[in-house]
Amino acid sequence: MIKDSVKQSMEELFPPPAEPVVEEAPAEETEEEEAGAKKKKAAKKAEPRLNGVLERDYKTFGYHLDIQLDPGELLAAVLILDKADFFIESITGVDWIKEDQLEVIYDFSRYDFDACRVVIRTRTPRSEPSVPTITKIFAGANWHERETHDFFGIKFEGHPHLIPLLLPEDADFHPLLKDFKP
C-alpha cells in the first residue's frame, strides 16, 4: 500500500522530538481537524495540532493522510511525494484569524487505483506570511501559488512570477482574508 510507505517516509522526516500526535490539554479555542465524526461533541474543545502525520478516515474526510509540518520541511515532504508519483491537485490557503496564522494546504493524489490522497498543511504567521515555493518540484504549482497569493497575500519565496492571476493586475487586496473589507 502506497499509503503506508508514504506515511513511513514522512514520519522519517520528522525527527524523534516531534512525537506522534497526542491529544493535549486544550490550549486555546480553535476548531481544527481533530474533530472526527466520532468526536463531534468534543469539537468545541479542539486542541491545536502538532506537526506530524495523521491517518484520516477516508469516508469521513475524503483523504487518507494528513500531514502538518513547518514551512521549512515542506520541500522535503513534497519531494517524497514527487518520488512516489503523486500529482498535484491544488494549493490553497485558510485564514485562521483567531490564531493569527495562515494555513497553506497542498493536495496531492495519485493516478493509480491504490487511492491515496495526501494533504500537507503548513502554517505561517499572519503578519508576514511566507512559504517556500514548490514550483521547482511541481511546475503545476505555479498558478495555484499565484492564486493563493492573490487571495491571501502569502508570499511564495522563490516563485518565478508572483503577480496576480485571477485578480486584476494592480490588485493590492486579498479577498479571502477574514478581515477583508470590500
Binding site: E31, E33, G36, A37, A46, G62, I105, V119
Partner: peptide, 16 residues
C-alpha cells in the same frame, strides 16, 4: 457540518 476539513473529488466532464 462538524468542524473539520473535508474534501470531495468527482469526475466531471472536464476532469477531477
Amino acid at each position: 457540518p462538524a468542524a473539520g476539513d473535508y474534501y470531495q473529488a468527482v469526475e466531471t466532464a472536464r476532469g477531477s
